[in-house]
Amino acid sequence: MEYGGVLPADAPDPSVESEARLRTLDFPVFQLTPQPSLTRAPVVGFTEIGGAVELEELSVLFTYTLWKHPDDHSDTRNEIELDEQTRRDIEEEPAWGRPAWLIEQVQLFRYPMLWDAVRTARHASPDRVRHSLEQQLVDHTNHVLRNSFREELGLPAGPSTRTDWEATVTSVRDGSINVDGRHRSAVQIDTDPFVYAAGFRIDEHIVCTSVLPRESLPFIDLSLTTYD
């Protein structure tokens, strides 16, 4: 229970519940191929839109920590530059303490994150235009840009009506992607200065898209695998 804005030391680890939910899904979910330079964030992201009988949309999102020097996670060259306030928030424990799982997760803010990097989305009644592979790739790309690159895009902290930074379907091109060890037809956005994006369709209802910071590309394998 959370009381007065304080999370008690015995609060349950949310990663346990999210992982359990992930294992109950009745459709395939995709992840970046496990590799030394990446650690999947412990809490899985879910977004959903309700329908009259079943969920109209359910998406699963994986975030990763990037290790530029994966042989030694304690190597300070893995860390990003932090402002003084953020560093204090990570290093200083509040008087009331924090759950062990939260202490561990907070430490990850020292390192570069590939936020919502891989998204698997299932639509119960897909719309031909709104849920096309191209549009879903654009939507995922803009989601990552809006939330991870606001400063680089010159966006204000609050709401903004600017749209000149957004990716559009006109930037989507044909491509290919390695999935479970074989190449599959895909679409990609390779024109944005901050991210590279690629996606493929699994079936009529399910699409997988991946959006990655360009600066991370030299350190990772872009292939995908089915989550087991």
Score class of each variant (00 low, 15 high):
V211T: 14
T39S: 15
S15P: 06
T161R: 13
D174Q: 14
P70S: 14
R173Q: 15
L137G: 05
S160Q: 11
V6L: 12
V195D: 02
P42G: 11
N178W: 04
R88N: 04
V211R: 07
G175N: 03
E48V: 09
V179T: 06
D71I: 05
H183C: 07
E84W: 05
A197E: 10
H183D: 15
T120Y: 09
G175E: 06
A121H: 06
D83I: 01
P14I: 12
S74V: 01
A52I: 10
A198L: 12
L153F: 06
D127P: 02
R110W: 00
T86V: 06
F46C: 12
L153M: 09
A11H: 14
T168W: 13
P156I: 11
V187Y: 00
S74R: 12
W101Y: 12
R130P: 03
A117Q: 12
F219W: 13
S132Q: 11
Y64N: 09
V138A: 08
H123I: 10
N178H: 05
P12N: 11
E104T: 08
D127M: 01
I90K: 03
M1Y: 04
D203V: 06
D83H: 00
H73Y: 04
R110C: 05
E48D: 07
G175H: 05
G181L: 05
S171N: 08
Y227A: 15
G45D: 15
D174L: 02
I206D: 05
L61A: 06
Y3K: 11
T86S: 10
E151M: 04
S216T: 03
V43F: 08
L133A: 06
P36Q: 13
V53I: 14
G175R: 00
A41Y: 13
V43A: 13
L102Y: 05
V43D: 14
V195T: 12
E57I: 13
V138L: 05
H73W: 00
E54Q: 10
A124G: 01
S37L: 08
R23Q: 15
D83R: 03
T47P: 00
W165A: 03
E79G: 06
P213V: 12
P159V: 04
S74W: 02
V179W: 07
L217D: 10
R87H: 06
D192H: 14
S160Y: 09
S74G: 02
V195G: 03
D221A: 14
T39V: 11
F30I: 09
W101E: 13
R122Y: 09
A11M: 05
E48Q: 15
